[in-house]
């Protein structure tokens, strides 16, 4: 499960940035086009944080939908799935959101 590797990456980053202070809460932004499952992330989080400065920290997920800009009808459209297609039928689209995988912020004591 790659969510464990992702969670370990997040724990590493926040612990480094917290420089010894305990981390209480972490907010992570996940786009719908990343292969990261929110439930699996939450499941792996405690495991990854155990024994670190982020032990017991809460994980908040900011889930973002996939959005494309369509050059045919010049609108932004939310995608219901992974298929980069505008409801107008055009495939001449650019993905403008949904690939985010960012640590937004943390709360330290």
């Amino acid at each position: 499960m790659h969510e464990l590797a992702i969670a370990e990456n997040i724990v590493d980053t926040v612990c480094t940035r917290a420089a010894g202070r305990p981390v209480r809460r972490v907010t992570v932004r996940i786009g719908a086009l990343t292969a990261v499952l929110p439930d699996a992330m939450l499941l792996c989080w405690d495991l990854a944080a155990t024994g670190t400065a982020a032990h017991g920290a809460a994980l908040d997920l900011d889930l973002r939908p996939a959005v494309v800009f369509c050059r045919a009808c010049r609108t932004d459209q939310r995608l219901p799935d992974m298929i980069p297609l505008c409801p107008c039928g055009s495939a001449d689209v650019t993905v403008t959101a949904g690939r985010e995988l960012h640590i937004v912020s943390m709360e330290v004591a």
Binding site: D12, V108, A109
Partner: peptide, 21 residues
């Protein structure tokens, strides 16, 4: 741990996979 101190929110805006990338 000293809970009298208020928690501080630190903005990071870092890519999760920055190190791998």
């Amino acid at each position: 741990m000293c809970y009298d101190e208020p928690a501080v929110t630190v903005t990071l805006e870092e890519r999760v996979l920055a190190r791998n990338d």
